[in-house]
Design a protein around this nucleic acid. Structure first.
Length: 484
DNA sequence: TCTGGGGTCCTGGTACTA
DNA sequence: TCTGTAGTACCAGGACCC
């Protein structure tokens, strides 16, 4: 069942937007005392990696999300560079979302670190005063349960609540009082409005429109002419502070896809075909985990020159059959020239359903007989054997038989460097081992917050960023300046 | 110096069908 | 039966979001 708030104009600022501050980086700092107060960059560490999140301390050097990692390293050579640990972040996110759902049944998660809440639907607030109190309480609860900080925006609609939380960052709360919306919004850049990215922003700027007020002055017809029907109407409404989009819980998934960017462009056609098969199999695993099937198979190819093309094929009915999806992806690849080399390949499935159509095996056979010779369907792609040497990824937690809990600071040339510390400890010491050291093993992340023995299910004690004696005075986190 | 991964939504062109 | 039209589905690309 899909729950959503009624799409109506409301007056009270009872839509709450929560945004955790520089979430991945903050979580890493909380779990690793030696990184607190230091520049931390989380993202892909390969030659083509980009920054997922940068801590406030790293942003001082100009590092922001979506920036190529190589550029970040030049700007902040002494920062700690870590790979994302999504399972760890998800566990923290689950705790935060739990707190939000205690406020209202209408919680709309946007990502691991962001969500809208309709406070009125949960009877958690009905006017400015009660909304502010709910926001203050929520921030306290998040801090107590996770040890992390989040920023809260409160307004009468989703757009303004999101803008408010942006203004509240880092570690704050902003409530937009009813009646003040347009005055506040007017002087802001058009890029403040959701849906206005670099392309639309440029388009509007060329038409002499740079502020929200100027959007309102331009009029609806002119906006439709400039940016199209749907976007034009939406933009005009937002410029007048009108946004009646409801908070929607349990949004349905529309598509499932996987993609890989390769460290080095692939030129070998056979290798490209093998990679597409692997991606198709991974996509099927994701589909099946979600108990879904789909009708439309999409192949994505990014070529050596970064030009990206997609090819898609719609089947007669939904499927989660690996052979059918693999074959469709292979057929789509047949129509793509990859001679210059490819840097990214992706396979996706859309047109989702929660059932499959039985005659798809027949459909696969039919397509096969019409096409060229193919390998038999149903055979799993042979995966490359796992490397013999153990992989120690920077930032991941480990346990040593004698020295206890720590995390990988770096590895290479048969050595792995580990810092031994826990969320509750002082910054720890560093030791280097052989990568095949039998005393060293991967470990699960430790909780950031220690539960009081007598507390039962009640409040917990933060062991991470909130302690008075951990050198965090003035420590602030924030989103990593995502400029997109 | 090069630019991830997983999504959503919109637009314009084309093909098909009633 | 042919033609014009409108609606719909599909396809590819672009923009945007976190």
């Amino acid at each position: 069942m899909v729950w959503c708030s009624i799409g109506r104009v409301r007056n009270a600022p009872t839509i709450l937007h929560l945004d955790m501050d520089a979430f991945f980086a903050q979580a890493e700092q909380a779990s690793k005392p030696s990184l607190r107060g230091k520049a931390v960059v989380v993202g892909g560490l390969g030659p083509r990696g980009v920054v997922a999140t940068a801590s406030y301390e790293a942003r001082v050097f100009g590092v922001h999300s979506a920036m190529p990692m190589a550029q970040a390293r030049r700007l902040a050579p002494n920062a700690a560079y870590l790979v994302p640990r999504f399972a760890f972040y998800r566990s923290i996110s689950d705790q935060v979302m739990g707190l939000l759902r205690a406020l209202s049944p209408l919680v709309e998660p946007l990502s691991l670190d962001e969500a809208f809440v309709d406070l009125e639907a949960g009877e958690a607030a009905w006017d400015s005063e009660s909304a502010r109190l709910a926001g203050i309480r929520l921030r306290g609860d998040i801090r107590a349960v996770t040890g992390l900080t989040g920023s809260v925006g409160l307004a009468c609609c989703k757009m303004l609540a999101k803008i408010a939380s942006e203004q509240a960052k880092p570690d704050g709360l902003v409530l937009i009082e009813p009646g003040t919306e347009r005055a506040m919004l007017g002087p802001m850049s058009v890029r403040t409005l959701p849906g206005v990215g670099p392309a639309t922003g440029d388009h509007l700027r060329r038409a002499g429109i740079t502020t929200v007020d100027e959007i309102a002055e331009a009029g609806e017809d002119e906006l439709v002419r400039l940016v199209g029907k749907a976007h034009g109407h939406a933009l005009y409404a937002m410029a007048l502070a009108r946004d009646d989009r409801p908070v929607v819980a349990e949004r349905e998934t529309k598509s499932v896809s996987v993609e890989d960017t390769y460290d080095v462009d692939i030129h070998d056609r056979v290798r490209v075909e093998l990679e597409v098969r692997r991606l198709a199999d991974r996509c099927v695993r994701r589909l099946r985990q979600a108990a879904l099937s789909g009708r439309t198979i999409v192949l994505k190819v990014r070529r050596y020159d970064f030009s990206t093309l997609t090819r898609s094929e719609t089947l007669r009915g939904p499927t989660d059959d690996p052979a059918v999806i693999r074959e469709a992806a292979a057929r789509l690849l047949d129509a793509v020239d990859t001679t210059g080399g490819v840097r990214l390949l992706g396979v996706g499935v859309s047109g989702l359903a929660d059932f499959t159509q039985e005659d798809l095996f027949a459909q696969a056979a039919e397509k096969r007989s019409a096409g060229s010779e193919e390998e038999p369907v149903g055979e799993p792609v042979v995966e490359a054997p796992a490397p013999v040497e153990r992989q120690w990824r920077p930032g991941h937690e480990v346990r040593h038989a004698e020295l206890g809990h720590g995390w990988v600071q770096g590895s290479g040339l048969g050595r792995v460097t580990v810092r031994f510390e826990t969320p509750e400890s002082e910054p720890g010491r560093v030791r280097t081992f052989r990568t095949d050291d039998p005393g060293l093993e991967p470990a699960d992340p430790l909780p950031l917050v220690r539960r009081r023995p007598d507390a039962g299910d009640g409040p917990a004690t933060a062991t991470g960023v909130t302690g008075p004696d951990i050198g965090l005075t003035g420590w602030r986190s924030g989103k990593s300046g995502n400029s997109r």
